[in-house]
Design a binder for these strands. Structure first.
Lengths: 254, 254
DNA sequence: TGCACCAAGTGGCCTTACCATCTATCCTGT
DNA sequence: ACAGGATAGATGGTAAGGCCACTTGGTGCA
């Protein structure tokens, strides 16, 4: 009879990878708090019993994970960095960049994120966050009325404030990444009409409504506005079947 | 008078970093599709005009981002990988480990993703996807009743099928990443009672209800089940204020 | 006391080299 | 003619040694 034992994959273990794991574990377990220094490359090369290129490869990987930063000079050595959400955002971006994404998927994902973020922002925003959002809407209005070229920046700024007011930085980071991917996709596909002022003014009108819903803590309405705004703005670029699926997801059909 | 020109920081540019950027851009812009090969290290060393350790450091970084995989042998060379949730999940875990992310945020994010994925799966699942989900639920039930150790795998398999049935691969990738991070966190924090069969049976009961809601295309109910299941299962690990915010977000309070 | 200088150590990069492994090809045996 | 194994070449993994620019900390001079 065959044994029920299942074998695990026998992938080779590279020495640089084991160094990464050891140092990573040492940092995450608190042996090297933020701001502390690791031994220099030449010391590590002795401690691990490997050559310098090998420890350098390991340090590069840890560096790209945002855990370390090199520091030259006497009494130098790699220093442990404070955790930054940047790497998480970069992971989102590379994942979105390599995935062969179609517009429908990306739009759908952004509708999910923005809708939820708007609901959360309505529920748990603080006065300071509300003030920042109000200021951003005002800047959007000014930019649209002056037909200034920085409207896209002002638009993004407002949505960033909403993401932040959601109190969930994963939402903020992924929202930013998806926003960038969507922008890249559209920029590549079609040359937008940048001078069309009515579109800008319509955006201002919608975002003002979103802001007011958030202000009066009407989560359901805030989420609804955010979702339908995105759907209305982009649905014309989708195929007919994707449009129908989107409508159904938003609960308008049926 | 002083000029109004503002200078930008003059940070040093490392050559290995420029290689990373060039290769990353080439991959993300589609010049090297998934599965294609880059020139070998020795070739790249010639093309970039640098030494082999330097191109190796660059390749290591790209490798740790999940973009590449080395491939030895004649006609070898670094291979471009398909996007994987692994690196995103690792970023989540790193941020959790360094305490710049808390459990509440991650749970909230997973509730948003799983809820939306379940709604979408209810709307647009195909017969084949439904069969796969039914099969996965069945495997969960068998594993729970036999008290087998592979229950966690069966549980994950069911949720993977739901993510896939949502028709949105971004949802599937990020769902997978968050799931992995959450699992690691719990595994580390507390030694769960693996023999507690009632918990498994309860999970089976809930997921069966979710499956049936998806089967009858009841999107609202499917979303509700997915969200409340996650909240009920994990909320006891949250602080009291986070629990209240979660309840409010789910629309039960008020 | 202040400041310029200097020496030591650090990371950044290079050169050369060897090894295990994998792939493609060829060559042999059938 | 074909199947299969041996072989040769290229690849990535790792090592050793060395040079350079720069940062740092102390030292000695004004």
């Amino acid at each position: 009879m065959t044994s029920s034992h299942s074998f695990t994959a026998a992938s080779p273990v590279y020495t640089y990878q084991r160094i990464v794991e050891q140092i990573e574990h040492a940092i995450l377990s608190g042996d090297f708090p933020v701001g502390s220094q690791l031994p220099s490359e030449r010391d590590l090369m002795g401690q691990f019993g490997v050559s310098r290129p090998t420890v350098r490869e390991a340090l590069r990987v840890l560096q790209s994970m945002g855990l370390l930063e090199p520091r030259p000079g006497t009494r130098g050595g790699p220093v442990v960095l404070a955790p930054s959400p940047d790497t998480l955002g970069r992971s989102f971006r590379t994942m979105l960049g390599t995935a062969s994404l179609d517009l429908a998927e990306l739009l759908q994902y952004r509708i999910i994120l923005d809708g939820s973020a708007s609901e959360l922002a309505a529920i748990r925003h603080t006065d300071a966050e509300l003030a920042l959002m109000r200021e951003a809407v005002e800047r959007m209005r000014e930019s649209a009325e002056a037909d200034a070229p920085d409207f896209a920046d002002a638009d993004l700024a407002f949505h960033e404030r909403v993401w932040e007011a959601s109190g969930n930085q994963i939402l903020a980071l992924s929202g930013h990444a998806v926003w960038g991917a969507l922008r890249d996709l559209l920029q590549r596909d079609a040359e937008r009409s940048p001078g069309d002022n009515s579109v800008k003014l319509e955006s201002v009108r919608i975002d003002t409504g979103l802001f007011e819903a958030i202000e009066r803590r009407d989560a359901a309405e805030a989420g609804r506005i955010a979702r339908t705004a995105l759907a209305d703005r982009f649905s014309s670029m989708l195929s007919e079947s994707d449009q129908r699926a989107l409508e159904q997801f938003l609960g308008r059909a049926q």
